[in-house]
Simulated assay, not measured.
Amino acid sequence: MRSVEEPASGDTSDLTARARVRDAAIGLFGRNGFGTGVRAIAEDAGVSAGLILHHFGSKEGLRQSCDEHVLRMIREYKKKGVQAGSAEQMLMAMASVEESAPLVGYALRSLQSGGNLAKSFIDHFVADAEEWIADGVAAGTIRPSRDEKARARFVTVQGFGALMLDLALNPPEDPSDFAGMLRGYIDRMGLPTAELYTQGLMTDSSMLDAYLMYADPPGSDGPGPPEQDAGSTDAPGDDKP
């Protein structure tokens, strides 16, 4: 994403105005969507629409500045104490803190609309997922995979995709209550998610076998099966580790 340059003059009031506009835009975009106009943002920030154009060049320039700020703050937030746990847990923690809740709204809105922030946001969480899944595999609490990177991306995309669809089907009474949105999602989806990831779904490997036959038919130069039994789909209650 292109960075919007800060003023070179060192005028702190100029920087404060930029931050005030940016923060107002983050809040309004998160609550009302990216169709929010420059005049509404200017009114909320207590500045003129001309000043926004002076600082950011255009609404797109303002959006890029918001993207960069939100992603940077989410990364900082994770560094400060939410390295472990799922993406949903991190978002819940952020949404429960008054100053960071607008970041959650903006991030969720960006995921819905796509774009650079959505891609960066997902890539960021995929990298995190690779780490905690690898730790689980090493500890023996998670089964290994034929393709660890693909599994980490699937887990991330599936999780956020389910969250976005659930929010669309269950719109909150208060669009600014991001913590309430996430709590509602966990209440509705927590049990089946935990059950599916813990116990699995299929009682045999026929679906996996059929896919592997399709993806790597006999006689091809495909990768073949992993050395470890990564694709085992033992039924719940089996004594295999």
Rank of each mutant, 00 (worst) to 15 (best):
A152Q: 01
E130R: 13
A168K: 08
G140L: 09
R143E: 06
Q199F: 15
A107Y: 08
T198Y: 12
G136L: 04
L167G: 10
K119M: 01
K149A: 12
L196C: 10
S120F: 00
M207V: 14
G114E: 04
P192G: 14
A152S: 06
D135P: 01
M202N: 08
G180F: 12
L169T: 07
A138D: 12
D147H: 06
F125N: 03
Y106Q: 04
G184W: 05
N170R: 05
L103C: 10
A210V: 06
T203P: 02
I122R: 02
P175D: 02
G105N: 09
A152H: 02
I142F: 07
D177P: 10
E148Y: 02
S206Y: 04
D209W: 00
S145C: 03
L191R: 15
R151E: 13
S100D: 07
E148P: 11
P175T: 03
A150L: 13
F121Y: 07
P172G: 06
D128V: 06
M164S: 06
E99K: 11
R143N: 04
G115V: 05
E148Q: 08
V157K: 02
L208C: 02
L212W: 10
F125I: 00
T198M: 09
T193D: 05
A139M: 05
E98H: 09
A129K: 08
F160N: 02
K119F: 00
S100I: 01
L163P: 03
L103A: 07
D166R: 03
E195P: 00
A127M: 08
G159W: 05
L165I: 04
I186Q: 15
G115P: 04
V97R: 14
I133M: 11
T198P: 03
S110I: 08
D135R: 15
